[in-house]
Design a protein around this nucleic acid. Structure first.
Lengths: 219, 219
DNA sequence: TAATTTTTCAGGGTTTACCCGAGTTTTTGT
DNA sequence: ACAAAAACTCGGGTAAACCCTGAAAAATTA
């Protein structure tokens, strides 16, 4: 009996999970022991099962992949996390790697590379696909020069900012937003100013466009 | 030998395509005859191969899924298109269905439903997952409500109004729009007033939202 | 050709959005 | 635990958006 690798697949897209399962089941040393479609159920599963590696989607509903990863590596240090994402975004990459993930690959990774990545990470080493490595390097070079127009990088919005943005999109005036949130008109204007700065927009019209283009209000 | 269904998978995420391939290869009546990672190559492939059904990702790089679908159904009427998407957006659903797709499913669809959808569409019928059906229904309801209630259907916009609307969406100020179109500032304000009235909006933020929701600038 | 819509523009006024600054509280990183 | 960063909270002043009224060419449609 060779050392089998017990794998948990965590992704909210069933179709993707099915495909992954199908690929991994063809390998003798892999055992897909479970599937999770959101963050909390990943942690639930780990409580009751022996898992060697979690294939973790960065973009999970509810509790996102980064938080989940943080929990996994703090509660179960022996469990390896291989992050998977649609997007090659520096923010995601660096953030989840800072939270314990041992590898990061994109969903446009081929079958062979996927298998290699899993074996590498399960063996205790790190694995990054070439594109990701490149991003990390660039990130280190730039370090903090992220206001570049290249690639629409979108900083995280705070709770208040999201609330204000939502109401702006619904055609509320500043005064109406203030009344709705029980804060001063000036405070609302301040939040909008942050939004304009973060989203690199010139006015509310731009905020609405960017919000809709990037699905910023889909929570 | 039963009637085999020749399938082309069009998605830019290799991993997803691999998974899909793996699932479909397990079915006796399915043959995955090709893979495409962008719009043009789909059309290229169809020129030289016999394909019964295209599994088409709505969000393709370069030429997007909607355009690709339009081309497919106009050039190859016998080829069925089953649209696949990450998002359950009414705009995507209705638009791609209007462009010849015979079915629409989400990437969080399970294996069995996927196989069922493919067989249904390949057989010449339409297939929509439950979530998608719900969205379509809501869309129809809303349209009826809004057009019956306050008569707030969307009136036709004039050429100038569209131009102004487009520039508003691009964050131009009134003065900049005036300069860009070589007309007076007052004229631009007049056009915007018409837009606010026609689209039943209170401000430019509303104009942008309505414009994007209803694809008013897709010419 | 007549009727309608579109495009163009103005004066004058009110409201709102946006810019600069700044203090307090909360969160984050080491 | 401490320093740094981010978030939340406001005020004053200026530029821009928005409203109302009115109106004359120009283009489109019936």
């Amino acid at each position: 009996m060779t050392t089998e690798i017990n794998i948990l697949i965590a992704d909210d897209h069933t179709m993707f999970v099915d495909g992954m399962d199908s690929i991994l089941s063809g390998e003798a040393d892999f055992v897909v022991v479970g599937r999770s479609y959101d963050g909390p159920s990943v942690l639930d599963f780990l409580r009751n099962h022996k898992v060697d590696l979690v294939l973790l989607d960065v973009n999970l509903p509810g509790m996102n992949g980064i938080e989940v990863c943080k929990e996994i590596t703090s509660q179960y240090p022996d469990v390896k996390v291989l992050a998977i994402s649609m997007f090659n975004e520096e923010s995601f990459v660096s953030e989840i790697l800072n939270n314990g993930a041992k590898g990061y690959i994109l969903k446009n990774t081929g079958r062979e590379e996927l298998l290699k990545a899993i074996r590498t990470v399960a063996g205790g080493n790190s694995y990054f696909s070439d594109e990701v490595t490149e991003i990390i390097m660039k990130g280190l070079m730039n370090k903090r020069k992220s206001s570049a127009r290249t690639g629409s990088f979108i900083p995280r919005l705070s709770r208040r900012e999201k609330e204000v943005l939502k109401l702006i999109t619904r055609e509320f005036t500043t005064q109406e937003i203030a009344d709705n949130l029980f804060i001063s008109l000036k405070t609302v204007e301040s939040h909008r100013a942050s939004l304009l700065s973060k989203l690199n927009a010139r006015n509310s019209a731009g905020l609405v466009r960017i919000a809709m283009e990037n699905h910023l209000l889909d929570d």
